[in-house]
Design a protein around this nucleic acid. Structure first.
Lengths: 238, 238
DNA sequence: GCAATTATTATGTCTAGACATAATGACATC
DNA sequence: GATGTCATTATGTCTAGACATAATAATTGC
């Protein structure tokens, strides 16, 4: 009844969401087509399209040409995780950022890294990022000197490889993996914890078109968590 | 011949991406406005808008009314993680799904859970999901009987609480946290590992408007990883 | 000089209509 | 029965123009 006086595609999105939540349109149900909905809501089809597309991008609706739009059967919740620059991440927690370069040598990477980064010479950079003096994350990075030769002459004592690459080495895509690992002896001593302690580890490889740019392992100090939210729509539903 | 003969907003997105990667438009640079770009590309402004909006949603561009559109200074990589139903997740790995209910009792949840779920009576459901006979994830869930009274009479031996809730208890939003935890004695015996082993843990709370529906802790067997990709066709640097 | 008002500007969104594209279903053919 | 063709249908996208909105810049008033 209480029709939102809010106009626009978000109002339509809200109403569609309401019908899904209220089970008027249960999972698997094929909802009316855009033309009919446009007529019902008294708006242009493009406006309905905008609303439904947004919901489909979040995984709530399945849309297929000709087949129509249906409520997702297994609502694969699509959570978006923001991975910012480490310095920024620490400063956003209101802590003082501190960075210490541990080593920076040209070397031949171990087999698993060499498999993705290529056989060419690489730069091995290790560093520790801290917040208010407490170790925060241990960065263990390999940089391909074939794709990023400038890295050889870069000075990673003043700026972290994390940030230097951002400014100097563009990339097109990358893979990320989140996992839990037992702290190695090195991890433990740097992060001030016990060997074998469970660490949250982020492994990332970034590519510029076909060439791998860098591969990094970020081992976070115990207690680290990644938070995210799902379905944080512009609710206003009630 | 970087010019794709593909027409449409994706072609514009590709060209904008190329200019960003080629540092023709370096980070912080204010790019031409939509009207000018539309004229340059020989299309309607709405088409440029579609392309730039998509890039802004991925965090590559910062857009502000009147101020214009600029290349993001600190490109936060926005990785989207798909969290599907556990059964589906196992079956997608080509494994045979097996589910075993461990316990299902009305009880008073511990303080941390009670803080979010409320003081009302709750249902405590624990279960083990396996793939090809090997333990995959231990589900430890609390369901609010105030918001979902039907759960009391549900039979969780045949269907997991994970799936039952999806079909019977709608939710509007939720929080998720990823972390690494040491296996408790219970975790260890169920997941067939050693006590203290590093486990990947997902903690999730879902809400229907203002009322918490369920809180769950999913402890995955050692070796579990979450993979995701960034910039499959776009995205940032770092 | 400083604050309040007004003008300007770029994005945000909507409309009505059009053609493109993919997937389905029916029909016809071998 | 199996297969190929064609019409149908719903979404995907584009256009040209319009008004809304927010944030900045310019101007005015004190």
């Amino acid at each position: 009844m209480t029709k939102h006086h809010v106009k626009g595609w978000q109002a339509i999105q809200d109403e569609v969401l309401r019908r899904i939540h209220a089970r008027e349109w249960p999972p698997g149900h094929v909802i009316p087509n855009e033309v009919d909905l446009a007529q019902e809501f008294g708006c242009a089809r493009a406006t309905v399209n905008r609303a439904l597309r947004a919901l489909a991008e979040e995984g709530l609706l399945d849309r297929r040409r000709k087949a129509g739009t249906r409520v997702a059967l297994h609502p694969v919740t699509r959570a978006t995780v923001d991975i910012s620059v480490i310095r920024q991440e620490i400063e956003e927690r209101g802590q003082h950022y501190d960075y210490r370069l541990l080593a920076c040598d040209a070397a031949s990477p171990p087999a698993p890294v060499r498999a993705t980064l290529g056989a060419g010479s690489s730069l091995h950079v290790t560093a520790l990022h801290s917040g208010d003096g407490a170790p925060y994350v241990f960065e263990d990075r390999w940089i391909s000197l074939k794709t990023t030769p400038d890295a050889r002459s870069a000075d990673f004592t003043g700026i972290s490889a994390n940030e230097w690459l951002l400014a100097h080495a563009p990339y097109t895509h990358g893979d990320i993996a989140f996992s839990a690992e037992a702290a190695s002896a090195q991890d433990a001593s740097l992060l001030n914890t016990a060997e074998g302690a469970p660490l949250f580890v982020v492994t990332r490889t970034t590519w510029d078109h076909d060439c791998a740019v860098t591969a990094v392992r970020l081992a976070y100090a115990p207690g680290y968590r990644i938070y995210t939210r799902i379905g944080a729509q512009s609710d206003s539903a009630g």
